[in-house]
Simulated assay, not measured.
Amino acid sequence: MYVLDDGPGTRDARLLRTAGPCVERLAARLTAATEVERAALLAEFWADAERRGTPLVEEVAENSGQYAVTFLRRGHRATCQVLLLADGVTGHGDLAPALLDRLPGTDVWHLTYLLPAGSGGAYRLAADISPGGPPADPKRRRQRLRALCAYAAVDPLNPRMADVTWGAPGGSAYAVPGAAA
């Protein structure tokens, strides 16, 4: 678990990034699985995510009143990075911290934030399928992420819609228990 800072003496609790319990459980199960079992585990994971709807929200026992909110995106072999644009979570200045992580050897892209009860907002996701992967040069990578924002779309596993502040007509809603409707 780590905290992203906004500068000396400041801490933005909204950006407390952690490993999501759902993804940790999947990773542990995949480690001991055969190839056939891995395919079944991944199919089961995605079926559960579709049934529950995303993002996945799980209470964190050791942090009373805190919830692990896991944003998911199913990738394919051409996906080289996935960007989350979330009201109240993603900073407009530096988009790199809003990149989802890929669970190695799978199609699971994930990003979990530890958020307090009552948190909520709207979000969109953008999958980068550009050939050659992300640029190594930091300036070009920032430009690529900014350009990727134009392709952000609603979460296909989330039926709840909301207005976003990222310049798009609509997005998917996320809500932690206690959030206003």
Results as ranks from 00 to 15, higher is better:
Val60Ala: 10
Arg124Thr: 00
Arg140Ala: 14
Tyr113Gln: 07
Asp128Phe: 08
His92Leu: 10
Tyr123Thr: 03
Arg160Met: 04
Ala68Asp: 04
Ala78Ser: 14
Glu58Cys: 05
Gly132Ile: 07
Tyr123His: 03
Leu95Trp: 06
Arg51Met: 02
Leu148Gln: 11
Gly105Thr: 08
Arg102His: 01
Ala68Tyr: 01
Gly133Thr: 07
Leu157Glu: 12
Arg51Ile: 05
Ile129Cys: 15
Phe71Pro: 03
Val60Pro: 06
Lys139Phe: 15
Gly118Thr: 00
Arg74Gly: 00
Val89Lys: 08
Thr106Phe: 11
Arg124Glu: 03
Pro138Lys: 09
Leu114Gln: 11
Leu84Lys: 02
Gly91Val: 05
Ala136Asn: 06
His76Cys: 11
Thr79Phe: 08
Arg144Thr: 12
Ala162Trp: 02
Pro104Phe: 06
Val108Phe: 10
Leu103Lys: 01
Arg140Pro: 01
Thr112Cys: 14
Leu95Met: 05
Leu148Asn: 13
Ala68Asn: 03
Leu157Ile: 12
Val69Ala: 10
Val82Trp: 10
Arg160Val: 08
Ala117Met: 05
Asp128Thr: 07
Glu50Ala: 12
Val154Arg: 14
Arg74Glu: 09
Val154Phe: 12
Ala147Gln: 12
Pro104Lys: 03
Thr54Cys: 02
Pro104Val: 04
Arg102Lys: 02
Gln81Ile: 13
Leu103Asp: 01
Arg77Val: 02
Pro55Tyr: 00
Ser119Asp: 13
Pro138Asp: 13
Leu103Tyr: 07
Val60Tyr: 11
Tyr151Ala: 12
Pro156Gln: 01
Val82Gly: 08
Cys80Leu: 02
Ala162Ile: 04
Gly88Trp: 09
Val57Leu: 03
Leu72Ala: 09
Ser119Gln: 14
Ala86Arg: 00
Cys80Ser: 15
Pro159Cys: 02
Gln143Ser: 14
Pro104Asn: 07
Leu99Met: 10
Ser130Ile: 06
Gly105Lys: 11
Val57Met: 06
Gln143Asp: 13
Lys139Arg: 15
Tyr67Gln: 03
Asn63Gln: 14
Arg141Ala: 12
Thr90Trp: 00
His92Phe: 09
Asn63Trp: 10
Gly133Gln: 05
Val60Asn: 10
Glu62Thr: 07
Thr79Asn: 12
Arg51Glu: 10
Gly91Gln: 04
Leu145Asn: 04
Pro134Gly: 06
Ala152Pro: 10
Arg52Ala: 15
Gly88Phe: 11
Arg77Ser: 10
Glu50Trp: 07
Val82Cys: 09
Ala68Gln: 00
Ser119Phe: 13
His92Gly: 05
Asn158Ile: 05
Gly121Tyr: 03
Asp107Lys: 08
Arg74Thr: 00
Gly120Leu: 05
Glu50Tyr: 10
Gly75Thr: 08
Gly105Glu: 14
Val154Pro: 13
Gly133Asn: 10
Cys149His: 06
Asp87Pro: 01
Ala78Pro: 11
Gly88Met: 04
Ala78Tyr: 15
Gly53Glu: 06
Ala153Val: 14
Lys139Ala: 15
Gly132Cys: 08
Met161Tyr: 13
Met161Val: 14
Pro138Gly: 07
